[in-house]
Design a protein around this nucleic acid. Structure first.
Lengths: 264, 264
DNA sequence: GTGCGATCCTTTAGGCTGTACGGAGATGGT
DNA sequence: ACCATCTCCGTACAGCCTAAAGGATCGCAC
């Protein structure tokens, strides 16, 4: 499932996101027992614990002692609810990063925060980054990341692409880690067991594997240290993220020296 | 929806992927009118044209003049079918890249090929990269990418992370482009129209936006040239990819000079 | 106090989804 | 001719989102 930011009424969506029009109540009718916030929190709890696939309107309603349809008084659709969830959890992001050591350590600190944040809410990866949510959380997040990256002194256009790349790298790494977790939970097989059973059959079915795919074989030669605690793929993803951020930082440094030698 | 590589019987999955056990037919019963290949091709056509969400067993069956259940004779489940689709289209990837100019131009050529490839089959982004498919297509793809990146001379462990980062960067850029396309198709709104209508309401609802989010405002100042032909987000994603690959290449170069000054 | 009408919530229903199950018809080998 | 086997289909079930309609509850004007 891919989720797009509210396709319905733009005004209604934005009002919900920014909690506009929440003045004092004077209208008739029964008092609302629920609230947008309670619904969003319940939904986030479900998605965090059981994944986006388990997030149904029925499930959210049930958790609040209501039916699915009761939610539609507060939230126009499931899509919109997911937007609200997205923007809500973005409020958790740590705000300040130590810039006294320059942009480089701050960048890797930020990347690490984004990593743990996304791992806490892996369903975020299912929300489309195209046409983003445009709520306070999203703006706050942009603000946080930009505050770090503008200290490089690079021009805005370049910073924009760097932010985009950074978020992509983080999301990619988290995707592997999170989906590895989910796969382990759903199949009951650890990454190692999965690989062992597959590679045994594979070797039998395709005996000439190493000669047919020499580069891949070359990759396999350095196995690296066995992952002790952390599941294999999660560990690998973590290393991949660190490598990615380092590559990114080196790329920024290169851009900076170029900029310095040929300033316009 | 997130799809995992075949959770069923590992042997059956791999046999299907490698088309093992397709000897001459001597069994009784009616001749199969369909084939795994035809089913996979039909499924790919649907997913390419209408997206993963439109890919249902009923739809695939209909396209072949059969019911949904007829497919289950050939393919054990929808998940498995998607794995087969994935591995199948990977066969389209161009194989050879010009390495006479060194790894750098080859890398950007490769990235561009991966970009167009994924744009042609955007549903690939919905297949989990954790626990990959382990079919001939996947191995071929790895082989292709590794052939380019091993020419940097970096050690295998490092190359592995670089490959991972490269694929992540490409997938991230494609995701934005593809989902922007899909959003445009589904909402009937161009990126510009979408942004115009939203930003008007936003300015009204949050009048102090620029003072509250100064960094974001600073980003907005350089609007850049208006995208003439290509839809806005797709254009932006393309630029983001190019920037990402350049950053990556600079990162590799930095790693190379480090390696050269301190070889072990 | 009484009734109007807005609001909250539920029930029902419709159109999707993947796939388990059982059966119908076709076919090759004995 | 028979039978085991294979292809293919109809039915069914559980689950999904949400449109529509009705019941319960309450603030306010009269």
């Amino acid at each position: 499932m891919v989720v797009f930011a509210g396709q319905g009424d733009a005004r209604r969506s934005l009002e919900l996101l920014w909690r506009a029009g929440t003045g004092p109540r004077t209208a008739p009718g029964p008092k609302p027992a629920l609230s947008v916030d309670r619904i969003v929190r319940a939904a986030v709890e479900i998605a965090d614990a059981e994944g986006m696939a388990a997030l149904s309107m029925r499930a959210v309603g049930e958790r609040l002692g209501r039916t699915a349809m009761a939610l539609y008084t507060y939230v126009p659709s499931k899509t919109e609810l997911i937007d609200l969830m997205d923007d809500h959890v973005l409020g958790e992001l740590r705000e300040d990063y130590d810039l006294t050591g320059g942009w480089r350590p701050a960048l890797s600190e930020l990347a690490h925060e984004l990593w743990t944040f996304h791992l806490r809410h892996p369903w975020l990866l299912q929300v489309s980054p195209a046409r983003p949510v445009l709520g306070p959380g999203e703006f706050r997040m942009q603000e946080i990341v930009l505050r770090v990256l503008f200290t490089t002194g690079l021009p805005a256009a370049r910073v924009r692409r760097i932010v985009s790349t950074l978020l992509t790298v983080v999301r990619g790494a988290v995707q592997i880690a999170a989906e590895a977790r989910q796969a382990a939970r759903e199949t009951g097989l650890s990454d190692e067991d999965w690989w062992r059973s597959r590679s045994a059959v594979l070797a039998e079915l395709v005996p000439d594997l190493v000669t047919r795919y020499p580069q891949v074989a070359r990759l396999g030669e350095d196995a690296g240290p066995p992952p002790a605690q952390v599941p294999y793929l999660e560990h690998e993803a973590r290393l991949s993220l660190e490598a990615g951020v380092e590559l990114l930082a080196d790329g920024i440094a290169a851009a900076l020296t170029r900029e310095a030698s040929a300033p316009r």
